[in-house]
Amino acid sequence: MDEEKEVGPKLLDAHEIGRLRQLATAVKADLSRSGLVVRDAGEEPDRQTAPGGLEIDLDQVDDEAGGLWLTWELHPDVRQSVREAVQQGRTSDPVVQASVDVHERTTEAIVCMLNALGYEAEQSNASHRPFAVRVLTRPC
């Protein structure tokens, strides 16, 4: 039998990917006009030194993790300090707790901003995307 088998994850259909790209463009424009630094995921070639700010990620996989996601990134120096503390088992270090607190509050604020701008957005409850915001729809 010469059945073709799909390899890898199933992607969203072209229509949904187009809708999400338009949504991403609108979100980036509106949040930039609101004063936030917004960049696309992977825009910075070196993840270790990428500047802080809001990162937009369009996940094209057709599963519960697919869609448009926003993540707040701290300054690279803070990310490095957190990484070192966690690697050394110092999870109660003040820099780690401050990082968690900032991410929690920033996530809440981004959802509030998007809602005020007419978007439907929600905080992530997925363990692989902690502190992320999922944008579902744009203003009518």
Rank of each mutant, 00 (worst) to 15 (best):
R83P: 06
T49R: 09
T107C: 07
V96H: 03
V78E: 09
L20C: 02
A29W: 08
E64T: 11
D46W: 13
L117A: 06
L23M: 04
D59Y: 12
A50G: 15
A85I: 12
M113R: 14
V37A: 11
P45V: 15
S124K: 03
I17A: 13
L23R: 01
N115D: 12
D59G: 12
H128Y: 13
D101A: 06
S32V: 11
E120V: 08
L114S: 00
L117P: 09
L20M: 02
Q22N: 14
A116C: 00
N115K: 06
P45T: 06
L68A: 00
D46V: 13
T71Y: 09
L31G: 00
E43N: 09
H128R: 14
E64F: 14
W69M: 05
G42S: 02
P139W: 04
G89I: 01
V86T: 12
V61M: 04
E73V: 08
Y119A: 13
E44D: 15
D93A: 07
S81I: 08
P45K: 14
V102L: 08
R134H: 02
L114P: 00
A132P: 10
A29V: 11
I110G: 04
P51H: 01
R33D: 15
E73L: 13
R21C: 05
A132I: 03
T106P: 06
S99C: 00
E108I: 10
S99G: 05
V102E: 07
R19W: 05
R47A: 12
D63V: 06
W72H: 09
V82R: 03
G42M: 12
L74M: 03
V78N: 02
G118F: 00
I56E: 11
P139G: 11
I110D: 04
S127A: 10
E73W: 13
L58K: 11
S124D: 12
G18I: 00
